[in-house]
């Protein structure tokens, strides 16, 4: 039994989508979009994401924005052709630094070397508040955490079925997703993904990461040599002196890179964009 014929939006973090490498066709009808099966087993066609816009560009034929969550970024693109012309007009009102809530369908592109790239074609975009962002983060983390618990149960019993996993208290759909995860991503480190997401969300919710990013950005700005940039060791040392630990510096550098504020000039040397 389903809640609705309408495809519900999945609330997943960008890293879960980015690490996806399995596509499942929706049926014989070629017009139907395929499902993307993520490492946590989520069957994705439509997603809803909430985060900070870190880049917004508009050209004649398309409008693109990058929206960041605590662990990475989603790439959102609306073209002047097709059904999302109206939402493209709405997207053009948003600028870098705005908080946005976006619901859209995910399309994939496979590169020559076999990697998958994902773009969100927006259906709706709304201005978000910090409160909505925190709720989205918390709920998405709750769903991912529950999924990990179900995955652990599947890993314990090689002959796990949807029925016996759901008897442990999981919804049938999440049991199905957990079985998907283990069968389609046998070598994936689920625990590492959850740890990364959980740590980053906690810091994001408390505002710790936002503050740390400001400090790290300032260190790079002040110490940046015109050509060489600042070494990783220098940044960690400078941040440590201000009470910021190495792990938070790493998260800040990842976040600043995703936000497009810094770039890596050479190995472990960073510069302001």
């Amino acid at each position: 039994m389903e809640f609705s014929k309408r495809e519900p939006s999945r609330w997943i973090f960008s890293r879960e989508l980015k690490d996806s490498s399995q596509i499942e066709e929706s049926g014989q009808d070629e017009r139907l979009r395929p499902y993307i099966i993520t490492p946590l087993g989520t069957k994705v066609k439509r997603i809803m994401v909430c985060g900070l816009i870190t880049s917004a560009t508009s050209e004649e034929a398309s409008t693109k924005i990058v929206i960041s969550d605590p662990v990475g970024s989603f790439y959102v693109s609306a073209s002047s052709a097709g059904f999302n012309e109206l939402v493209r007009t709405e997207m053009q009102q948003f600028k870098t630094g705005d908080l946005a809530l976006i619901m859209g369908r995910v399309t994939h592109f496979k590169t020559e070397d076999g990697a998958f790239l994902f773009t969100v074609n927006p259906e709706r975009i709304w201005t978000a508040t910090d409160h909505i962002k925190k709720f989205w983060n918390a709920r998405a983390l709750r769903i991912a955490s529950r999924r990990l618990l179900a995955i652990r149960e599947v890993q314990k019993s090689p002959n796990a079925t949807v029925s016996n996993i759901s008897k442990l208290g999981y919804a049938r759909e999440e049991a199905e997703f957990a079985i998907n995860a283990v069968s389609k991503y046998p070598d994936y480190d689920f625990e590492k993904l959850l740890e990364a997401v959980s740590t980053s969300v906690s810091k994001d919710q408390s505002g710790e990461l936002v503050e740390a990013k400001k400090v790290v950005l300032e260190i790079i700005r002040k110490r940046s040599d015109d050509s060489k940039g600042v070494t990783y060791e220098e940044i960690v040392k400078g941040a440590n002196e201000l009470g910021i630990e190495k792990k938070t510096v790493d998260d800040s550098l990842n976040g600043l890179g995703n936000d497009g504020d810094i770039f890596e000039v050479s190995l472990k040397r960073f510069k302001i964009v």
Partner: peptide, 11 residues
């Protein structure tokens, strides 16, 4: 309205 909660939707 449609309510989305991350695990499903309901009218």
């Amino acid at each position: 309205f449609t309510l989305e909660d991350g695990t499903g939707s309901i009218s």
